[in-house]
């Protein structure tokens, strides 16, 4: 698996690149981090002293190398606003976000591909147009706006779903979740706390739907277009000429041929989902990394921003690495390219 090694090493390179860019940006933006740390009322002398303590007086390359070394040792610095270790903050919030992304991704994949396939099968018919409208709506509606709309309709007016939060507040007292892996929904399930599981799922639906809308639109269009393209290929004509049934051709052959681009798009839309959480978590008051990121951005909490960027980059690379692996399983030609 020489190629696998190559991909891993190139991923590492990208990570270095990402860390370098965020680091540099944090240094060149016209806002002194030390001021943010001790507050606006500090004297110039105090600030200068702090700059030395924080190592900000050293040349930027030296600072970067130190930063890298620290990061590797697990010291990601302290958040300027919460004064907590950043790694700690991220570790506490990441599971909630990952669960949200998982559900959003699942919704997008299941509904997107299924409706895309359906639209392809009924190309040009009424069903096709309806799905197209849904897809365009999903792609074009901003997440915060869609989030608010869904909240107003399903939580406010119809009261089918709770408006905000990850669980009901009372849950903490009557059905507390035992921590095993740190993923609350998952933990509630494996510890048999099904009350909490259902409550969590109930809370999950609206934010996950909101977050999935864009990817859903993209995937359904992608699935439809790819299937139609595959259905016009020579090998489909050949399959027909050899009397294979339309069912077999459509579901067993063509669908699998259409998969690789769908998987690629899924990987790419992971990036969107990560930034999407910033808004969705804000709207639904979700205790994840997204809302933490928004706060960090607003307060120019640069160590936190850098930490979050690094995590996002790792997440993105990991997703795409997995996508590549899946790709190679589906299409034998992938490693050749």
């Amino acid at each position: 698996m020489k190629i696998l090694r190559n991909r891993l090493s190139s991923a590492l390179l990208v990570l270095f690149g990402a860390s370098f860019i965020t680091f540099t940006l944090a240094r060149v933006i016209p806002s002194d981090p030390s001021l943010a740390y001790i507050g606006p009322k500090a004297t110039a002398a105090e600030a200068a002293k702090l700059r030395i303590t924080l190592g900000l007086d050293q040349p930027i390359p030296v600072q970067y190398v130190k930063y890298l070394a620290q990061t590797f040792q697990g010291n990601w610095g302290y958040s300027l606003s919460t004064k907590q270790p950043i790694l700690q903050e991220i570790r506490d919030r990441l599971p909630a976000t990952l669960e949200l992304i998982f559900f959003a991704m699942s919704f997008a994949l299941i509904f997107g591909v299924a409706l895309g396939v359906y639209a392809a099968k009924y190309r040009g018919k009424f069903q096709d147009s309806l799905i197209r409208i849904l897809a365009i709506a999903g792609v074009s509606m901003p997440a915060f706006w869609l989030g608010l709309l869904l909240q107003m309709l399903f939580a406010g007016r119809l009261t089918w779903f709770p408006a905000t939060g990850q669980f009901d507040i009372e849950l903490k007292y009557d059905h507390p979740i035992t921590k095993v892996t740190g993923f609350p929904l998952f933990d509630s399930m494996i510890t048999g706390n099904y009350h909490a599981t259902f409550n969590g799922l109930h809370h999950m639906i609206l934010p996950a739907l909101t977050l999935s809308a864009y990817s859903f639109g993209l995937l359904s269009r992608m699935a439809r277009a790819n299937l139609l393209e595959v259905m016009s290929q020579d090998y489909v004509k050949v399959a027909r000429a050899y009397g294979l049934s339309e069912r077999l051709i459509f579901f067993k052959l063509a669908l699998r041929n259409a998969l690789p681009p769908i998987v690629t798009v899924t990987g790419l839309s992971a990036a969107y989902l990560i930034t999407g959480t910033f808004f969705v978590e804000q709207v639904y008051n979700w205790p994840g990394i997204g809302s933490f990121a928004v706060n960090a951005l607003l307060s120019i909490d640069y160590p936190a921003i850098m930490g979050i960027t690094l995590v996002a980059a790792i997440g993105y690379l990991l997703t795409n690495f997995i996508v590549d692996l899946i790709q190679s399983k589906i299409d034998p030609r992938v490693w050749m390219k």
Partner: peptide
């Protein structure tokens, strides 16, 4: 009758086979 009493060979063998299945799998289906 297609694939049982009538068979067909196509112009471009490279595109006539599905790229993501082995030759064996495709012959098997037929």
């Amino acid at each position: 009758l297609r694939g049982s009493e009538i068979s067909m060979i196509f112009q471009n063998p490279q595109s006539a086979f599905n790229p993501i299945f082995t030759i064996g799998a495709q012959l098997h289906m037929v």
